[in-house]
């Protein structure tokens, strides 16, 4: 039963992802990207990771996609221009992607996990969010703190790049 749902979600995700890159209208692409990301969130739920699923919906489907749509709206992307630029590379891209998925699929099917699965069995993962929170603030405290510096750097960078443009080249 679970497998059936997984294949349904996976198939919709792949199809909508193809729609994202093949549709001519940027808004349609963005909407299909939302569909794709929602399917990924559903897969997370199947994997007993409700926290990741919620984050996926909040951040990607919510925040990131709103920005995408804003960018599309502000830039007013011409559909024809987009087609010229991107679709001329379609042939080689299909070949490369097909080759990549063949190789990756082969390796993924053949590979196996040699290590023990660790302390997180299904019972422990029932409290998934608690487990993540706990490990973020114990085991992963250092990278977690570094991320705050990363965000600060990104924030300053965004301000630097945008405010210069507004000042007419800063001269």
């Amino acid at each position: 039963m679970e497998q059936l749902f997984f294949y349904i979600f996976a198939a919709i995700a792949v199809i909508s992802a193809i729609c994202v890159i093949s549709l001519r209208n940027a808004v349609h692409s963005a909407v299909f990207l939302i569909v794709c990301l929602l399917q990924v969130a559903a897969v997370y739920i199947l994997l007993r990771a409700p926290f990741l699923a919620a984050v996926q919906v909040f951040i990607y489907v919510g925040a990131v996609m709103v920005f995408f749509l804003f960018a599309v709206m502000v830039l007013d992307l011409g559909t024809e221009k987009l087609k010229q630029h991107i679709h001329s590379q379609g042939g080689p891209a299909v070949v490369i992607v097909a080759a990549m998925s063949a190789v990756l699929g082969y390796y993924a099917l053949k590979g196996s996990i040699t290590a023990p699965l660790g302390e997180y069995n299904e019972a422990a993962l029932a409290r998934n969010t608690e487990v993540i929170g706990r490990s973020l603030f114990t085991q992963y405290i250092f990278p977690f703190e570094v991320v705050s510096v990363v965000l600060l750097a990104a924030l300053i960078g965004a301000v630097v790049l945008v405010s210069r443009m507004k000042a007419g080249g800063g001269r």
Partner: peptide, 12 residues
């Protein structure tokens, strides 16, 4: 991330 910003520093 820092380098992306630094490389683009001469925005004009």
């Amino acid at each position: 991330l820092s380098f992306y910003v630094l490389v683009a520093y001469r925005v004009d």
